[in-house]
Amino acid sequence: MPGRGSKKIAQQPTLADFKVGVDNVIFSVDTAQNRLLVLLVMRQEEPFSGHWCLPGTLVRQGESLEDAAYRILAEKIRVKNLYLEQLYTFGGPGRDPRECDGSYGVRYLSVSYFALVRFEEAELIADGVSGIAWYPLEQVPQLAFDHNKILEYGHRRLRNKLEYSPVAFEVLPEVFTLSDLYQLYTTVLGDNFADYSNFRARLLKLGFLYDTKVKVSRGAGRPASLYRFDAEAFAPFKDKPLVFI
């Protein structure tokens, strides 16, 4: 029995033991069919064997998070131009069934990355996977782990990035028409995000599109001007919530 004046020593909480993974939300826009796409792969091992998921990997010893993100990109897709940034860290208890398996006894934390690639240039790599495919966003099935939640978060980030950054120009050709750009925005943001005439007038007023003075004919309409994105002219607008809406 403790004597008078003795103090009970508080038990120290058990610290979590983590494994760190990287999951990539890789988007592309099929402008020919007006579809926003996300890259999915099929898992070949438990847990969730045979289920679609986002391309991911556990971080290797001595490897940075960003290097792991680029590694999984390089293992699943060949592409020259891409945009990549860290998205969010998902680490809630129970997000991975292996946490409940006594043979593991660790928590699985996912640092997610958001990527945007040019659909026409992207070549999928099927080596070492039982399935890999571009899925239209509205047709994505129930994914392994909490990957539907990660995908939803990535989609919100993509929409926000289009509003205040030049990320759209990462997936357009070097020269493009205003109609091409408008189509990309409507594919990601929906048909009601802006009227084309207002969209066109606002873009030209902002002054970061360079008119190449070259025109292209498509169908029976009037020839359309080809533009190029001017990064230097865009610099004053960087990180300002201004853009096309």
Score class of each variant (00 low, 15 high):
Q139D: 11
F234M: 01
N81L: 10
V214Q: 13
V29A: 13
Q12K: 15
A133G: 06
L158K: 04
H155G: 00
G91F: 10
V167H: 02
K215E: 08
D96M: 13
E170D: 09
Q44E: 15
R118S: 08
H155W: 07
Q44A: 15
R78Y: 12
E121I: 04
A231L: 11
Y210T: 00
L65A: 11
Y227K: 06
F169R: 01
G56V: 00
S103V: 10
E63H: 12
S165H: 03
E138L: 09
A168T: 02
F193Q: 00
Y227C: 07
G105N: 11
K8Q: 13
K19M: 11
F193M: 03
V117A: 05
R71F: 03
G5H: 10
S103R: 13
R218A: 05
E170W: 08
G5T: 07
A10D: 09
E66T: 15
L36S: 04
N192H: 08
T177G: 08
L181N: 01
D96W: 01
F90E: 06
A194P: 00
E138M: 10
A122W: 04
A10S: 14
L39E: 07
P223L: 09
A10I: 13
L158F: 12
L73N: 08
D30Q: 05
D96F: 06
E45M: 14
Y164C: 01
R95T: 10
T14K: 02
R98T: 03
R78C: 13
F234E: 02
M1G: 10
E46K: 14
L189H: 06
V171Y: 02
L209D: 01
A74S: 14
A233S: 11
K76L: 05
A16T: 11
L158C: 02
Y185Q: 00
K238R: 15
L124R: 08
Y153V: 09
V22E: 03
Q183V: 12
Y164W: 10
Q142C: 07
M42T: 15
E163R: 00
I77F: 03
K161G: 00
L54C: 00
S165C: 04
L36F: 07
T89I: 12
Y104D: 10
G94F: 07
A16Y: 14
R71A: 04
Q12R: 13
Y210W: 06
R202L: 11
Q183F: 02
D101N: 12
Y108K: 09
A126E: 12
L226D: 12
T212Y: 05
F229N: 01
P97V: 05
L40V: 10
A220S: 08
L65H: 10
R159N: 12
E170G: 01
Q142I: 11
L242G: 06
F237V: 05
E99G: 04
N192P: 02
K213H: 14
N192C: 03
P93C: 00
P55K: 01
E152V: 08
A233I: 04
A10Y: 12
T177A: 11
A126W: 08
N34A: 15
F229P: 00
L15K: 13
L242P: 02
D30E: 06
E170P: 01
P173E: 06
V167A: 03
S110T: 14
